[in-house]
Computed example of a mutant assay.
Amino acid sequence: MTSTAQKYPLSMRLLHWLRAAVILGTLLVGLLMVNLPDDVTAKFEALYPNHKQFGVLALLLVLIQAVLRIRFRARLPADGAGLQPWEHKLSHLTHKALYALMIIVPLMGYSMSSTFTQSDGVPFFFFGHLPELLPKNDRWFEVFQLLHRVLAYTLLGLIALHIAGALKHRFFDKDPQADVLKRML
């Protein structure tokens, strides 16, 4: 059961915006790097390693956010009272899909890097390279690559829907109780 608090706890709000920045940045770098020609040195020396390590960071942030969500369950703000039933259902479905994809997309990227025979691994900032958990196999790499790409675009579409919904409720709905964005500000 949720409380009638108006805002999410500060830790969850800060983590939400940090996670959003990391995920959007990682998605944008991913789009940039796959569209650059292979002879661009920065593609493999900077963009790929940073995409990988920020992807791992995004995964860790979403896992922390999920734990906090469970921990603060009793202190979470109530659902927007001004939402239509279909908006409420769409919001819950979108949030569940967002959480699932924020976990699955980095795991597919990690699996992709792990199975690629020419991969130099997954760096993670000052911790060095993370262990590769799957055997090298370029056929599996192609499967993980396709899943990573398709699911990343799906995640981007859901993020756009999430943002559009928050802005709609903020600026276009007549009922101030429908303004769900204020809970995360």
Results as ranks from 00 to 15, higher is better:
M1K: 10
T2E: 12
T4D: 15
T4N: 15
T4F: 14
Q6L: 15
P9N: 00
L10N: 08
L10G: 11
S11C: 15
S11E: 14
L15E: 01
H16K: 08
W17M: 12
L18Q: 02
R19K: 12
R19G: 15
I23N: 04
T26Y: 04
T26W: 05
V29T: 03
V29D: 06
G30Q: 05
L32G: 10
D38M: 13
T41D: 13
T41P: 01
F44G: 13
A46R: 10
P49Y: 00
K52D: 03
Q53Y: 09
G55A: 03
A58Q: 04
A58E: 04
L59G: 06
L63I: 07
I64P: 07
A66K: 10
A66C: 11
F72S: 02
A74V: 02
A74C: 06
L76A: 01
D79Q: 12
A81H: 04
G82F: 00
L83Y: 10
L83T: 08
E87V: 03
H88E: 13
L90I: 09
H92R: 14
L93C: 12
T94N: 15
T94W: 09
A97D: 02
A97R: 06
L101D: 01
I103E: 08
G109A: 00
Y110L: 00
Y110F: 12
M112L: 12
F116T: 07
F116V: 06
T117I: 12
Q118E: 13
F124A: 04
F125R: 01
F125T: 02
F126M: 09
G128T: 06
L130C: 03
P131Q: 01
L134H: 00
P135C: 03
N137P: 09
L146E: 12
L146P: 00
L146N: 08
H148D: 01
R149V: 10
V150H: 09
L151T: 03
Y153T: 03
L161N: 06
I163W: 02
A164W: 07
A164F: 06
A164V: 10
F171G: 10
D173K: 14
D173S: 13
D173N: 14
K174S: 15
A178H: 01
D179A: 10
D179N: 15
V180E: 12
K182D: 05
R183A: 14
M184E: 05
